[in-house]
Amino acid sequence: MNDINILEYLGIFAFAASGAHVAIEEKFDLFGIYILATVTAMGGGVLRDIVTDVGIPLFFENYTTIPFIILGATIPVILRGKLKYNNMFVIIDAIGLSAFSVSSGIKALESGYNLMLFLFATSITGVGGGVLRDIITNRKPEIFKTDVYCIACILGSILLWFLYPLLGTHVSQHISLIVIFSIRMICYIKKINLPVIHKN
């Protein structure tokens, strides 16, 4: 298991926890909580695999993610009312966003994707699960309202696209990881958001 895989598992845990947290807020039953946690954790990767036509989505062939989803969903259930989606989860979530985006980007580069498909693969893997979570719970997707989230993913992915042929896999993926994580966390801490255009 390499370091990217470890970071991905942390991300799966954090995304599952965020899905369960939202499900509890929306008064889902226990089955609904675990389903929403799974959708949040793996939805982006499944969407990516469907659109890029790679066959059966990886989630349905690799069971190693399931324990992390169960653990991530169970903690909010046990600590309901006591657990806040605090800085610790934001940090883990940012790690997951970075790892998902970069690992997906490396696979896209190795598959010879063009720039547009490359950016789609990296972005949808990082944010697709959260968008599906919000759609299922009838919420406006958070990435379109607050947080520099998908933008961090896109900027880091573009950097990966240009650095990969120059520096190779190892160096370029770590630089991209650091950039995505840093942008996400700086914007969160400083409360930096894109401007909202008001009607009047």
Rank of each mutant, 00 (worst) to 15 (best):
L7C: 09
L10N: 03
I143M: 11
I95M: 12
I124V: 15
F31C: 04
S111C: 01
P57G: 06
L166N: 11
I50N: 11
S123W: 11
I192G: 02
G105A: 04
L83Q: 08
W161M: 10
D93I: 10
L166K: 15
V179F: 04
K190E: 13
K107A: 14
I4Y: 04
I197M: 10
I35Y: 01
G130N: 09
V51Y: 14
S176M: 08
D49R: 00
L166E: 14
V77Y: 08
L119T: 06
V46M: 10
D134S: 03
P141T: 08
L160E: 05
M42K: 14
M116R: 13
H170W: 10
A37T: 00
A23R: 06
A108R: 13
D93A: 06
V127F: 02
V46E: 11
S98E: 11
P67E: 13
L155Q: 08
V22M: 08
R80D: 12
H174F: 15
T169F: 11
I183L: 10
L132D: 01
S104V: 04
I189P: 01
A23V: 00
M42A: 14
S18P: 00
F59S: 12
L167G: 01
A20P: 01
G45V: 07
E25P: 00
I4A: 10
L177F: 15
F89W: 05
I56Q: 06
P165N: 06
D147A: 09
F100V: 08
T74E: 03
I66K: 06
V131Y: 08
H198N: 14
H174A: 03
V196D: 13
L119E: 07
T169W: 10
V131F: 04
K140N: 14
G112P: 04
Y188T: 15
A152M: 10
F13G: 07
G168I: 09
P57M: 11
G32E: 02
L97W: 10
T122Y: 04
L163P: 00
I33N: 07
G43K: 02
I24T: 01
G19M: 03
L155G: 05
F15L: 05
L97E: 01
M116A: 15
R184T: 02
A99H: 04
I186N: 08
G105F: 06
F120E: 08
F13H: 08
I124H: 06
T125W: 04
I4W: 13
I12D: 02
F118L: 07
G32W: 03
G32V: 03
S157R: 07
D29W: 00
L97T: 14
I6C: 04
L119R: 07
F60Y: 13
L115W: 05
I75F: 05
I192S: 06
L36C: 00
D53L: 14
A108N: 04
H170Y: 15
G130T: 01
